[in-house]
Simulated scan of single mutants.
Amino acid sequence: MEVTKLEHACQIVTEGDARLVIDPGNFTRPVETTGVVAVVLTHEHPDHVTPEQLAGILARNPDAVVIGPAGVAAALAETGVPIDVVTDGDHRSVGPFDLSFHGTRHNVIHSSIPVIDNTGVLVNGRLFYPGDSYTEPGVPVEVLAAPVGAPWLKVAEMMDYVAAVAPRRAYPVHEATLSEIGYGMHTGRLREAVEPGGALVLLAPGESLTV
């Protein structure tokens, strides 16, 4: 299994000829890949999904299923795209991908901003991506896609979260809100949290990691 990181939150997981697209939002290049069997959307914020990105993916992959929490289904209702609604504890099998879902709520941005649905995904029992949350899946994690920059993110909490999950490897995502200097600072702290028990892998957009 291979995961390719695109810009910000979007990742493409490949197993054989099948692909799983996760969180294709508006900070990400148009996703023009084929072979997509499923699209997982952790929540409805536009940096994680836009109707335009989703329409482009489905135009090339009309049989792909779209999976996400109830908030995603409500936000995309006007598009007419059917959403397979999932929440914490649910499982789905799509092509070669075994998906388990963890968590229910987005991290708090501010007390004045409503907290929306957010459900992270564990792919084939090895790769976990929490979306915009600090959800711990409650199972060993081989590879963690770790958010490093966001309005809701505090570096100390990020470090505590990664230390609690204790992945064997981690790579940073959700970085578009950071300058080059900020990215270096945040990934440096992420490295401290991952090592020495695990390893941090820095992936530029378009680079891949074998999971």
Rank of each mutant, 00 (worst) to 15 (best):
V94A: 04
N107F: 01
A146Q: 04
G120F: 06
V141C: 07
V121T: 09
F97G: 05
G131W: 02
E192N: 03
V85H: 03
L122K: 03
E136P: 05
G149P: 10
F97I: 06
H186P: 00
T79G: 07
A77Q: 08
E157F: 05
E175R: 11
T177A: 14
S133I: 00
E78V: 10
S111Q: 10
T79K: 09
P130D: 02
A163D: 08
L127A: 08
E157L: 14
P82Y: 07
V148D: 00
T177M: 14
N107E: 14
A77T: 00
R169W: 15
M185D: 07
G149N: 06
A170V: 13
A164E: 15
V108M: 06
E136F: 05
I181L: 15
S112G: 02
S112A: 12
E142G: 03
G138A: 08
I109G: 00
V165M: 13
L99A: 08
L178F: 15
G125E: 05
A146G: 04
M159D: 08
A176Y: 12
P96H: 02
L99W: 08
G103M: 04
H102P: 12
D117C: 05
T87R: 12
Y183V: 09
L99K: 05
D160L: 11
A156T: 13
M185V: 14
D98H: 09
L127I: 15
I116P: 00
H174W: 14
Y161P: 07
L99E: 09
T79S: 13
K154T: 14
M159F: 05
E157R: 14
E175M: 12
A163S: 13
W152G: 04
A166K: 13
A77S: 01
D84L: 10
T187Y: 11
W152P: 02
V173W: 06
L76V: 07
H186K: 08
V81L: 02
L178G: 11
N124H: 01
A166R: 15
R126V: 11
F128G: 04
L99V: 07
L127T: 01
S111G: 02
G80I: 06
R189D: 12
V115W: 05
P172N: 00
R168E: 15
L144R: 08
N118F: 01
E157I: 14
A163T: 14
P167V: 10
S100L: 03
S112T: 10
D88L: 04
V173T: 14
V141W: 02
L178M: 12
V165A: 10
R191V: 01
H91I: 10
V94H: 00
H102V: 06
E78Q: 14
A77L: 07
L178T: 08
G103E: 03
T187M: 01
V148F: 05
V141S: 01
M185R: 09
E192D: 12
N107V: 11
V72E: 05
H174K: 07
M185Q: 10
S111T: 09
F97Q: 00
V123K: 00
L178K: 06
T87P: 00
H110A: 15
